[in-house]
C-alpha cells in the first residue's frame, strides 16, 4: 500500500517549501485565526465590561508615566538635534512646524506604539503564558467562564482603545518638550510656539496617524495574547512568549506603518 494515497497529500508547492517558510506561514495562519476568533467572540454576549475597564486601567493608566517621560525626551531631543541645521539655513522659525508635523504624523505614534509593544506586549505575553502554565485558564473554564472572552477579548479591546489615547497624550507631552527646548535656546512664548505648530498642521496630518494607532494597539493586543495563550509548558515557555510578543508586535508595527503610509499617499494626504 502506498504511504500517501494522495487524498490528504499536500500539494507539490507546499512540500517543496523550505521548513522555515512553512513554519512562518503556519504561524501567520494561526495568528490570523486567533484574530478571527477575537471578532467572533467580541460580537456576541456575554460582554466582560468590568474586565475591559480593569484592563484599560492596567494598560492605559499604568503605561502613562513611561509613555510621558519617553515622549517628553523625544520632543526635547528632536528639537535640539534639528535646530542647528535649520539655523544654518536661516529657517529657525520653521522649527515648531517641522517638529510638530514629525511628531504628530510619524514619530509620536510609532515610538509610543513601540514602547507599548515592549511594556504591554511583554506583560500580556508573560501573564497569559504564566496563567496557561499554572492551569489558571483551565480553572477559569471549569468555573463556567469562557477564558478567551474573559482574558483575550478584554485585553485586545483595551490595547486597541488605549494606544490611540496614549499616542494623543504622548504627542502633547512631546510637543511640550519641544517647546521647552526652543524656549531654552531662544525667546518664544507658549502661545506662539503652539500657534506655529497648529498653523502648519491640518486634519489630514492628525487623522491617518490617529487611525493607524488603533491598528498598532490591535496588533500589540493580538500578538501578546496569541503568544501567551499558546505558551508552551514551563517557565522557559513563558519567557519565550514574552520575548516573541515584543519582537513580533514591534515588527508588525513597522509593517503596519509602511502600509499606512502607502494608503495615506494613495488618498493624497501626503
Amino acid at each position: 500500500m502506498p504511504q500517501n494515497s494522495g487524498k490528504n497529500a499536500a500539494p507539490f508547492w507546499i512540500s517543496a517549501m523550505p521548513a522555515g517558510l512553512k513554519d512562518f506561514l503556519l504561524e501567520v495562519g494561526d495568528t490570523s485565526r486567533f484574530a478571527g476568533r477575537f471578532f467572533r467572540e467580541f460580537l456576541f454576549p456575554p460582554y466582560e465590561l468590568r474586565e475591559v475597564i480593569r484592563q484599560c486601567f492596567e494598560i492605559g493608566y499604568r503605561s502613562l508615566p513611561l509613555v510621558g517621560l519617553t515622549a517628553f525626551i523625544i520632543g526635547l531631543v528632536l528639537t535640539l538635534q534639528s535646530r542647528p541645521t535649520l539655523v544654518e539655513f536661516g529657517a529657525e522659525s520653521w522649527l515648531p512646524a517641522m517638529v510638530g508635523i514629525s511628531i504628530i504624523r510619524e514619530i509620536g505614534p510609532v515610538i509610543i506604539a513601540l514602547i507599548c509593544a515592549g511594556k504591554i506586549g511583554s506583560r500580556i505575553g508573560a501573564e497569559l503564558g504564566s496563567m496557561k502554565v499554572t492551569e489558571q485558564i483551565d480553572a477559569m473554564e471549569v468555573s463556567g467562564t469562557n477564558p478567551f472572552k474573559y482574558i483575550v477579548v478584554s485585553r485586545i479591546i483595551a490595547t486597541t482603545l488605549m494606544i490611540p489615547l496614549l499616542v494623543i497624550i504622548g504627542d502633547a507631552i512631546a510637543l511640550y518638550g519641544s517647546f521647552l527646548a526652543v524656549k531654552f535656546k531662544g525667546e518664544v512664548s507658549f502661545t506662539l510656539f503652539f500657534h506655529q505648530v497648529f498653523h502648519s498642521t491640518e486634519f489630514s496630518d492628525f487623522i491617518p496617524a490617529f487611525i493607524k494607532s488603533f491598528f498598532f494597539g490591535f496588533a500589540i493586543g493580538v500578538i501578546g495574547c496569541y503568544k501567551g495563550y499558546n505558551s508552551k509548558k514551563g517557565t522557559e515557555g513563558v519567557g519565550e512568549s514574552a520575548n516573541s510578543a515584543v519582537v513580533v508586535s514591534s515588527l508588525l508595527i513597522f509593517i503596519l506603518d509602511l502600509i499606512a503610509v502607502q494608503i495615506t499617499e494613495f488618498f493624497g494626504y501626503i
Binding site: M131, T134, E135, D138, A139, V142
Partner: peptide, 19 residues
C-alpha cells in the same frame, strides 16, 4: 457543560489560584 461543571469541583495540581 457549564451547568454540569457547576456541580463538579476541580482542585488543580498547581492550585491554579488567580494571581
Amino acid at each position: 457543560l457549564d451547568e454540569l461543571r457547576a456541580r463538579i469541583g476541580f482542585v488543580f495540581q498547581s492550585s491554579a489560584l488567580y494571581d
